[in-house]
C-alpha cells in the first residue's frame, strides 16, 4: 500500500470519529435527569449554589456550544468530573483500564492459540472426527450466551470444586508493585510466582468466556481459508515435487491461509470490548466494562460518555488496522 493511500484512508477516519463524538455527546446531553441534581443528591444546597455549580460545569450554555467544549476537552483527555467518585473521569478510567486490557489480551491469545491449530487440523483432516468436532464446537461457541456460560463455570469450578476464585483480579494477600499495571507481567517481572499463579487462577475463567466466541469464529475462518489454499495449484505442485506434507503445510500453506485469520482477529478484537462488560459483570472483574455498567445505574453520565467514546475510538482504530493489515499481508489487494 502506498503512503498516499494510507493518508487517504486515515483522512477517511476523521468524519467517522467526528460523527461518533457527535452521537456520544448528544446521547448523553439529551439524557433526562439533570446532572446537577444528581450531583447535589440529598445535601442542602441553596438555589444560588446550584446555579453556580451549573455555570461552573458549563451546563447553562446551549448544546452546540457545549459540544465544541466537550470535543476540545476530549481531545486533551479531559472528560470532566465523575459525579460519583468526585474525581476526574480520566483518572478513574485510567485506573480501571489495565484490568480490561489484560483480560482482553489473555482472551485474544487464548482464542488465537486454540483456533489456529484447530482450524488448520480440521482442514487437513477434512471430514474426520476432529473436523466435525471443530465445526460443532465453533457453532456452540457462537451460540453460547457468555453471561450464562460464565455462571456455569463459576458454579462448577468455584462453587462445587473450589479450585478457582469467584471474583476479582488477584487475592487480597498479594501486594504487587505496579510496573506495567498488567498483573500477569508485573508478578513475573518481580519473580513472584505465587502471585502470578494466583492472578492466573483469577483470569482464566473470564478470559475463556470472553475469548470463546472469537475462537469459534477464527476456527471457522482458518479452516475455510486453509481448505482454499490447500486446493491451489502451487500446493498440488509442491506435493508433486515430493515435498514432505509437513513442509508444505508450514512453509507454503499456513502463511497464506492465515491472512484472513489475522484480519478477522483484528476485527474481532473490537468485539471483545462489548463482551468485556458482560464478562466483567459476571466475574466481578475490576475493569472498565463493569465500571461503565455500574455508572449507568448510578447515572454517572460523564463517565459513561467518556467510556463510550473511548470504546468507539478504539473500535474504529482496530477496524482501520485490520483493513491496513489485510492490504499489507495480501499483496493481491490494492486499495
Amino acid at each position: 500500500m502506498s503512503f498516499g493511500k494510507l493518508i487517504e484512508r486515515l483522512a477517511q477516519l476523521i468524519p467517522v470519529l467526528l460523527g461518533v463524538s457527535v452521537i456520544v455527546f448528544f446521547m448523553m446531553a439529551l439524557t433526562p435527569g439533570d446532572p446537577v441534581e444528581i450531583m447535589i443528591g440529598d445535601s442542602n444546597v441553596t438555589l444560588e449554589q446550584e446555579a453556580r455549580l451549573r455555570s461552573d460545569l458549563g451546563l447553562d450554555r446551549p448544546p452546540v456550544e457545549r459540544f465544541f467544549v466537550f470535543l476540545k476537552n476530549a481531545v486533551s483527555g479531559d472528560f470532566g468530573l465523575s459525579f460519583y467518585h468526585r474525581r476526574p473521569v480520566s483518572e478513574v478510567i485510567a485506573e480501571r483500564l489495565p484490568a480490561t486490557i489484560e483480560l482482553s489480551l489473555v482472551a485474544l491469545l487464548l482464542a488465537l492459540f486454540t483456533s489456529v491449530p484447530l482450524g488448520v487440523l480440521a482442514a487437513v483432516w477434512k471430514n474426520t472426527f476432529l473436523d466435525r468436532l471443530a465445526t460443532v464446537g465453533s457453532l456452540f461457541g457462537v451460540s453460547l450466551p457468555g453471561f450464562w456460560f460464565g455462571i456455569l463455570l463459576l458454579m462448577l469450578f468455584s462453587v462445587r470444586l473450589h479450585i478457582l476464585p469467584v471474583s476479582g483480579r488477584i487475592g487480597y494477600e498479594f501486594e504487587v508493585a505496579p510496573i506495567t499495571h498488567l498483573l500477569l507481567i508485573d508478578t513475573l517481572l518481580q519473580g513472584r510466582f505465587d502471585a502470578f499463579a494466583n492472578a492466573l487462577k483469577h483470569i482464566i475463567m473470564p478470559a475463556v468466556v470472553l475469548g470463546l466466541p472469537m475462537a469459534a469464529i477464527l476456527t471457522r475462518v482458518t479452516r475455510t481459508s486453509m481448505l482454499e489454499v490447500l486446493s491451489q495449484d502451487y500446493i498440488i505442485f509442491a506435493e508433486a515435487k515430493g515435498l514432505s506434507r509437513r513442509r508444505i503445510l508450514v512453509r507454503h500453506a499456513l502463511k497464506n491461509a492465515l491472512i484472513p485469520t489475522v484480519t478477522v482477529a483484528a476485527l474481532q478484537t473490537g468485539s471483545l470490548l462489548g463482551g468485556n462488560m458482560i464478562v466483567e459483570t459476571v466475574f466481578g472483574w475490576p475493569g472498565l466494562g463493569r465500571l461503565v455498567v455500574e455508572s449507568i445505574f448510578l447515572r454517572n453520565y460523564p463517565l459513561v460518555q467518556a467510556a463510550v467514546l473511548l470504546y468507539a475510538v478504539t473500535y474504529v482504530t482496530l477496524n482501520f488496522l485490520a483493513d491496513i493489515l489485510y492490504t499489507v499481508l495480501n499483496p493481491r489487494v490494492r486499495l
Binding site: 470490548l273 455498567v293 477496524n319
Partner: peptide
C-alpha cells in the same frame, strides 16, 4: 454511507447500552 460508517464505529453492545442508559 457516512451514517453507516459512523454507526459501525460503535461496538454493538456498547451502543445499545449507551442508548438505553439515555
Amino acid at each position: 454511507s457516512r451514517l453507516v460508517d459512523i454507526l459501525l464505529g460503535f461496538p454493538y453492545l456498547i451502543f445499545a447500552i449507551a442508548l438505553i442508559a439515555m
